[in-house]
Design a protein around this nucleic acid. Structure first.
Lengths: 209, 209
DNA sequence: ACAAGTTGTGTACGACTGTACACATAGCTG
DNA sequence: CAGCTATGTGTACAGTCGTACACAACTTGT
């Protein structure tokens, strides 16, 4: 038998996951990826796949878990860098966009998964977004910026914020990362969206009925 | 050779398109559909496909065109039914949801296409959304509801509205059409999103800088 | 009515797919 | 050291894929 490469434990597993991400990054849709294709990209024999995943959906689910880590890292950085409240939106959107560029394939995978073909992956991503929104609500409450809102309305506002940012993600994934002009347009537009939402939140109570 | 069924002109073409939609409606992702699969669902021999489409992307593009018609029909109905401005949001969201249920597969296809693997389809759907937003801006201007906004800000507001509704579409596609409780939740939540946005728009000018 | 064009059918083929199985190697535990 | 388990390899096979080609049947224009 041909020689066996030395490997660290779990190396192939990672190679397979990042191979799938690479293919997604090249413009493929996750739902259209096949086992052989992924193993080929990973430089591994097809049957190795089954040592780590039951099928492609399983791999997708584990990618969602890793996506959670990426998002948490991003949140941590945002919390550390957003000190004064006046530039809160600009800073946060900037950090979001730079993370989205740095982990382009991951965020591409996330954007795809929202309307993907595996219900489990959909739910996973949706759950990450819900967590994100609730953390955002926590932060806003801590900063006392919107303390006139009841819990439900604060949650709704954060939900809308997260959705708007997620939709901007789709825009961002549609342009080349080097096209700085387009990226800047998306950044500005996203900021304006969030400003509009927060203006709405600031004047919300009288409309609450 | 076996007998040839009588057919109307363009019948197979329609059968192929609705076969693709049917498969999407069954939970498949458009990007993962194959020619053979679609022709099988349409009850047609594989090679017939090429009489009408160059490849699956081509079929997708033609679906986007049909999607445009569906959206325009929806807009027309909304304009006809929304007479008094006070229930504008509730009426519009209601009409949107009932159309989304009635053409579930179409809207599923739309939600998928936003982050799909064909750039052309992405652009097509994005362009439909832009058209939708600009028509909405027209209507709002005609109703004189937001005449304190400059053109750019009105356009941005409408864009955000359309995006929020489109995102709600993803929610809606995630629940069974018969689950009336969930659908009602989505309806209410979407209305609140739009109310929040319009409250923001009503108080926007002072923040405009 | 006949020629031309259009649309659907049947057959064919090479490439690719998922996955089963037996086997080899590495690392861990005793 | 022996043996066990986890992990990677190679081979194999039946099913599916996209698509090329020749042919049939219907539609249309003249």
């Amino acid at each position: 038998m041909s020689e066996r490469k030395k490997r660290k434990p779990g190396e192939t597993r990672e190679k397979l996951m990042s191979a799938a991400l690479t293919l997604v990054g090249k413009g493929r849709h996750f739902a259209s990826l096949g086992i052989r294709e992924v193993t080929r990209q990973a430089g591994v024999v097809p049957t190795s796949f089954y040592r780590h995943f039951r099928n492609m959906d399983d791999l997708g689910l584990q990618l969602v878990d890793e996506l959670g880590l990426v998002l948490r890292r991003m949140m941590r950085e945002a919390r550390a860098n957003v000190l004064q409240a006046d530039k809160l939106i600009e800073e946060s959107v900037g950090i979001f966009i730079s993370h989205a560029q740095a982990n382009r394939s991951f965020f591409l995978f996330m954007a795809q998964g929202l309307a993907g073909e595996s219900r489990a992956i959909q739910d996973g991503i949706r759950s990450e977004m819900r967590y994100f929104a609730s953390e955002l609500a926590n932060d806003l409450q801590r900063l006392k910026l919107v303390d006139h809102l009841c819990d439900g309305d604060l949650e709704m506002t954060c939900d809308l914020v997260v959705r708007s940012v997620a939709f901007s993600l789709t825009d961002l994934m549609g342009v080349s990362a080097e096209d700085e002009y387009q990226v800047e347009q998306i950044r500005k537009r996203t900021c304006r969206f969030l400003q509009l939402i927060f203006v709405g939140a600031a004047h919300w109570d009288n409309k609450h009925l």
